[in-house]
Amino acid sequence: MSKDSTTTDNGTTKSTTIHIPSITQISRPFFSNKEISFLHSQTISDSLKLHYKSTKDQVFQLLFQICKSMKFPLRMLSTAMNYYQRYYLFNKFELNSNDILDDPYLISLSCLFLASKVEDCIKKLKDFQQTYNKIKNIDESISIDNLSFLEYQRKALLQIECKLLQIIKFDFNLGNNHPSIKMNIDYLLIQFCKQLKINYKISILSWFIQFDIIQTPLCLVIPPHCIAVGIIIVALNLKPKELHIEDNTDDDYDEILNSIDCERLNCPEVLVNESIIYILDYYIHQYNNSILKNYLPEKDPITNKDQVFNFMNLKTKFNDLQDLCYQIKEKDFIQN
């Protein structure tokens, strides 16, 4: 167990003696992009970068299946995804390790389990294990180190949970000091759409975008309410004429767009803009792998071009915004 104590305090990996070093850590719910790339450079070796990405997609797919089969709400999934990505800011990503504690899938299950507690949807750990083993086709009847497989797995999961708690620094609200601001984008998104009197079509489009975006590390950079507003702005700008949804009310989207007041929604505009740029970049590069793709027609019915061009056009439109943000940021930077 002495090794355990080394992981309890980030930054003190050396000492394993009786004297347990302890360092006060302040919860860091958000990181800058620069910090994330630095941390990743420490934990994910260059040769594994692509594997990290593809493993993440598979892991999230698995989590989604577990949530679906155990009937958990979406907010639990997004919390688990947040934890999983946070985990790999501070722990080495290993693919072919023999240690069960390095298994990304098991780590993700532990994230989901912790998320279930934090989101008040608690179920027994055994249920999680059984669903997981069933989906992954794992034989539960074997025994390892004189322990039944479930017991062995349980021990590993709890050890990972312990690590996770250190990583989130026991901050179960991740940056939301005001409890009425729910940390989950899907909840906020619905509230904002309702407030802004946005019709069903745009609301569901935002919701699909949200489903893509919760899988990205954006949630480690920008607070959820700002992402939610960013998503809504992107959705309104897309003005989809044809969506695989029955709703023919076409409101004046520009009017709604003009009525969005970031200040009133307590979202700093810089952060909203950053999330918009991120979302557009995401679709420009990942559109073909996205969930949104399944719901939009292949070609835009008006321009008759691939949908991805819409995102590119929007990006040029928002580039001015971006310049503006950089100016502001630079100013902040100098002042600080």
């Binding site: 980030n10 990996t13 006060t24 850590q25 302040i26 420490q42 501070f90 504690l101």
Partner: peptide
């Protein structure tokens, strides 16, 4: 348990024990 990865010490305000 294997190595927990290099633990970056940057950016974390460490104050007391």
């Amino acid at each position: 348990m294997s190595v927990a990865g290099p633990q970056p010490t940057v950016q974390l305000p460490s104050v007391s024990t």
